[in-house]
Design a protein around this nucleic acid. Structure first.
Length: 212
DNA sequence: CAGTTCCA
DNA sequence: GAGT
């Protein structure tokens, strides 16, 4: 018999191409955390600069063959960590498996992420509305895993000025968007103060992409 | 170009 | 809502 990673048949399509899997990762959270800590030991948190020279509020790291970076030269994926000069640490199997399963539950078969961006939100931290458009193949979805403190996710439309929907994301929630939703604007409201049993005063988000 | 920003 |  197969042990299921899912608590419930919880995948819900909340908009065309957007799937919200609530508490999806709960049974595997400790192994996810182990994987994240392993990555952070090799590629520590850092705050990147926007091309305009602003310091981003979110602290970031990456794992997998490619990592997302931003600096004065622009946004891009690269094989090496600019902080250490080394390749990004490998993507722990538990992370890759979870992303693949979440994508499959959402109807996106054979999702093989080559990049996992790890974002840390301390209380007060936000992420402005943006599109994920630095990947080469927009036919592949985005898989986003929420850990720790809850946050309000903003799901916008294809234009920055479009009305946004607010989704309350909790520890273990996974959001998958692709197809007609692949280029929708999205962001995160400032994270409220709190103390999560597993992660303390922080929210961690794992974003899996097929970048190349 | 760039705003994953800041400010009116 | 901005800028080239």
């Amino acid at each position: 018999m197969t042990l299921s990673l899912f608590n419930e048949p919880s995948a819900q399509e909340i908009a065309p191409g957007v799937w919200w899997l609530r508490a999806f990762a709960l049974p595997t959270l400790t192994s996810l955390q182990d994987g994240v800590n392993e990555v952070l030991a090799a590629a520590p948190w850092r705050q990147m600069q926007t091309p305009g020279g602003q310091t981003m509020a979110v602290s970031m790291s990456n794992c997998g063959p490619l990592g997302w970076v931003s600096d004065r030269a622009g946004y891009r994926y690269q094989t090496h960590d600019p902080l250490t000069g080394r390749p990004w640490p490998p993507m722990p199997q538990t992370l890759a498996n979870l992303a693949c399963l979440a994508a499959e539950q959402s109807g996106y078969v054979q999702f093989k992420p080559d990049a996992c961006l790890i974002n840390r939100y301390l209380p007060g931290t936000r992420l402005s509305l943006h599109q994920d458009r630095d990947e080469q193949d927009f036919s592949q979805p985005i898989v986003s895993v929420s850990l720790g403190l809850p946050a309000v996710f903003l799901l916008g439309g294809m234009a920055r000025s479009d009305k946004t929907f607010r989704l309350p994301l909790s520890h273990g929630d996974v959001l998958v968007w692709g197809g007609p939703a692949r280029l929708r604007f999205h962001g995160v409201m400032p994270v409220a103060e709190g103390d999560h049993p597993a992660l303390g005063r922080m929210r961690i988000n794992l974003t899996f992409r097929k970048a190349a």
